Amino acid sequence: MTIDIGLIRYSWSLVEPVAGKLAMHFYGRLFANYPHIREMFPPAMDMQRDRLLQALTQVVLNLEDGEGLSDYLGTLARDHRKYGVRPEHYPAVGSCLVAAMRYHAQGAWLPAYDDAWMTAYNFIAEVMIQAAEQDAAQTPPTWVGTVVSHEVRTPEVAVITVAPDQPYPFRAGQYATLQSAHWPRVWRSYSIANAPREDNLLSFHVRMVSGGWVSTALMHHTRPGDSLLLGPPRGSLVLDRASSSHLVFIAGGTGLAPLKALIEESVWVPDRPAIDLFHGVRRSADAYDNGDLQRLRAQHRRLRIVQTVSDEPQQRPRHNAVDALDYHRIIPRGDVFVCGSTEMVRVTTARLVAMGVPYDRIHTEFAPGGAPTLARL
């Protein structure tokens, strides 16, 4: 099977300027022609349209990277299992996607583009189906988690501990997608705030987002004993990406969660790295996890914690987490892990590069909190 990358990219350029309309057309056609598929999707489709476009862009931009693309598609397929995706769904998606692109190309679409896209899509479907089948032989599509504790730490942040019904095979620094019974078929990503433990418990730091369906349900309508659904672990913000013995961790708000998990894991590493953790919050009252961090510092012994406050007038000095590097005259010589909102990660990365930190020493995970994230087609 030979994929014509040139035709794929040129034909994509014809419709990319109207990609939002294309996604709406695609889902409208898919649900009209295959109404039974609609029940797999959430009530509101805005975020879903964005995820489709992110996934298409990832595929189009990475067609030459056979191994990388296969890894991406494999992860996508394993995550698809929680939606109930089956092999027979793939032809419906492929035909509707090509039809939507043909429609929005406004007469510029050629039959050769149909062939190129269907060849590429058949490859995508084959890789994903095989990955899903291999995964099904080892793990369930979802885990049922029982909430064992629910601690409201601030008016906006809760720490929720969940016991999965089966062993949950994750690595420190990864995240899970959660579904509340209050919003069926609506999944949101939350970093796991602990390293793997013998008791199999998972801790999540949940910040309530204004208008956020899942975050509001988790913050205000979830109690010990309630059940949550967990999708498979995802993400690559793991400790072995580092190659130096001195690490700098920069967290914004609940971006602390995966970095806390990495610190917890590093306690048991034979050559324990020295870690400087800079945790930025807007107000002093937003520092929701100080007690746990102090316990970690006592265990780790090579951990320094710097708390920064950015929006409190009486606070001196007043700065964000990356400002604190300058304030404390720290020039990162090793690896830097950054986690927070999309904007926080973008600004922090730019500042680090300006300080002379090489791009390959800056480790980020753009999910949860921003694009691009693996999304279902």
Rank of each mutant, 00 (worst) to 15 (best):
A261K: 00
F249A: 06
T222V: 08
R282D: 08
D292Q: 13
F278R: 06
D271Y: 10
I250Q: 01
D292G: 08
L296D: 09
I250C: 02
A257D: 01
D271P: 00
L256Y: 03
L202F: 03
A257F: 00
R283V: 12
A193R: 00
L228W: 08
M219F: 13
S227T: 13
S227K: 13
V206Q: 04
D226F: 12
V214S: 00
L296N: 03
L202G: 05
S203N: 03
A195P: 10
R241G: 05
D292P: 07
L247S: 02
A257H: 02
L228H: 04
D286A: 08
D226A: 12
S245D: 14
Y288P: 11
L239N: 07
R197D: 07
G231Y: 05
M208R: 15
S236P: 00
D226L: 02
V206R: 02
M219R: 15
P232Q: 07
D240L: 04
P233I: 05
P196A: 09
L256I: 03
S245L: 00
S245K: 11
A251R: 00
S210C: 09
P258E: 06
G211D: 12
S244Q: 08
F204T: 02
S227H: 14
V238T: 15
H220I: 05
L230I: 04
L262G: 09
G291W: 07
R282G: 12
